[in-house]
Structure formats: C-alpha cells, structure tokens
Nucleic acid binder design. Sequence first.
RNA 1: GGGGAGUUGGCGGAGCGGUCAAUCGCAACAGACUGUAAAUCUGUCGCCCCAGUGGCUACCAAGGUUCGAAUCCUUGACUCCCCA
Length: 310
Amino acid sequence: MKSLIAVLGPTATGKSALGIALAERFNGEIINCDSTAVYRGFDIGTDKVPIDQRRGIAHHLIDIADPTDEYTAAQFARDAAAAVADIHARGKLPILVGGTGFYYRALTRGLFPGPGKDARLRARLERIAERKGVETLHRMVSRVDPESGARIQARDLKRLVRALEVYFQTGKPLTRHFAETVSPLPADVRIGAVALRMPAPWLAERLARRVDEQFEAGLIDEIHGLLAAGVPPEARPFGGLVYRQAMEYLNRVRDEASTRALIAQENRKYARRQLIWFRKEPNLVWFDGPGTNAEVQDSVIRELAARDLL
RNA sequence: GGGGAGUUGGCGGAGCGGUCAAUCGCAACAGACUGUAAAUCUGUCGCCCCAGUGGCUACCAAGGUUCGAAUCCUUGACUCCCCA
C-alpha cells in the first residue's frame, strides 16, 4: 500500500511549511501542485520556497517549464503521476503541495484522454467569436454537443472553444469522451488529502503583508530581469496573479501603492475561488492554519497516522 | 470679495419632468469549472414580505411648481475651479 499525501487549500495559509515539516519527519519529497511555480524565473511572485529554505527536501515540478512554454493540467497530471511513482520506487513518501485545485483533480481523477490544443483551430474559432459574438460558438456547441451546450455558460469563450476543438478533432462530443476519464495514478495509491484554511480577515492581513514582502524582495527587479532576458510580456506566467498587476504598474496603469492594494485584493478573490473549489473536493480534511504552526502540524500528523497513511 | 461648476445607492459615474429602486464600471457576496485554471465565466447586489404587473423609504436639506420631480423654481449647507 502506497500513500500520497496532499496539502491543499487557499494561498498564504502555510501549505509549503506544513509540507516540508511532513517531509522532514516522514522521509518525504515534495511535488509542487501550483500552476505557476512550474515556470523558471518566476520566483518571488509565486512565493516559491527558496532552495536554502527547503531543508534539503527534494522538490519536484518546480522550475520545469520555460516561461514561453504552455504548461497544462494534462501535462501536470502525467508529470505528477510519474513523480509519485519515482518517489515510491525510492521508498519515500510523496507529498503534493499546492493550491491549484484543477491540477489536483487532473491528477487524482484524471482528464479524458482526448486531443490537446490545436492552435490553428482555436484561432479560427476565436475569430468567429470576435466577428459574430461568443454566443455563436455557444450555438455551435449546442448543435453538436447539447450536453456541453447546457453545461457551458454562453459567454465562456475558453470552454466553448475547447468543446468545439475536441469535437472537430475527434468527431465525438466532449461529453462522450468523459466516460473514458481515468486517473493517471496507479490504483494502489492511497491519497491522504488535508487542506488548510483561515478566517478571512486574518488571511487578508497575511496577504497584504505578503505583497509588501514581495515588493521588498525585488518583485519588480525580477520582472525587469525576465524581460531583459527576452521573456515576452505575453508569456503565460506574466498573465497570472501578481505578475499581471505588476506588469500594469510597469506600464504606468497605476502607481505602486494602488498596485500593492490591487494585488492583495486579487489574492483575496483567488483565495475565495480556491476555497469554493476545494470545498467540493471529496475526502479532504480541513485544518485551521497556518501550516507553520507546530500544533497544526501535529494534528495533521495525528489525522494521517490514524488513517494509516504515514 | 467677484465669476463658474457641482452634491445620485459602499466607491466611481450616467440619468435632466412620467416607462427610475435609478444605465454602466468597481468593490462586496454567492457560484460554475474535464488539456490556458494565479486562467475563464455566471448570478445577486436599498429595505420588507404571503416573492408579486407586491409594499415601503430613497437621488445634500427644507420649502415650492406640477396630475406626476433624481430631473424645474426658491432658500440654506457643503465641495471644487477661475479671477481678486
């Protein structure tokens, strides 16, 4: 019987610290489950744990993609499953740590084995949306795949494009592919998932403090460095939280003080979406953070030990 | 001291006699999510309820005109700009 521990929950609740504490105590290695931390060079804004603070614990799936790559949930599911197998093979305990719910779901429940992105097809569909309105795509989806049409909201461009992309590439509606969905994880892996949470006002305070720390740690210099190294401003990770707002600041959309406030605010909204996501995740045990707290760590260990996962 | 502009729901900001509980944006709140997910999208958003072509209170304040006012008039308070 092999265990996989997962430390999940909203941003800034101390997941990394809890993960490292568990790894130190139970001969574990960390697997990142954060969609942006996979990109090299994006360190400060993604709150990566610096190497000298990892206490010698191996961290997987961090810094594995170039900023110009388009890393996806499907790729993550494959890479993470491989990392889990590798860690198990070496007789160690894999500990998944991160806040990207979709990545966690892709790993634990799988994505349907359909085709990936087709850039030309997407461009074509997006052009149709531009010319005739997104609703046109929704009508197209409803015609070829009524179930998806009912499920996907009429203006949700990305999902509509995806549904049509799958249909045009396979001749089969997206919904029919779902039946073939399987987790890439071997069947004998037992998952022990815990999530950290915190009262909203407390989290808001931590988020505001973290933004200030990121600026003091040289967030803006990091961005200048990336741009100087030739990373285009359209690169995927620049479009995400913290970096998007910081880029706008560099483009003089707003001053630094309001940029910091905006980033904190966007982080709060993100934390909210993460909570909504993880609340629906089955078999997940919640703990009141922060994960740096020794008592919290102890109760997590007790819980996992009681379920014979450690 | 003189001249001009303004005061609208948590904020910004439309509306300029009826169809206005008041366009829209933001925030807030609730939610969706199967290969971009730190992304993308949706709903609610004055108060009350038997939840409806329902009731009540509302557009700085007080009066007035009118069948009817956030919209017009008078006075007052406050804010901003220009000239002294």
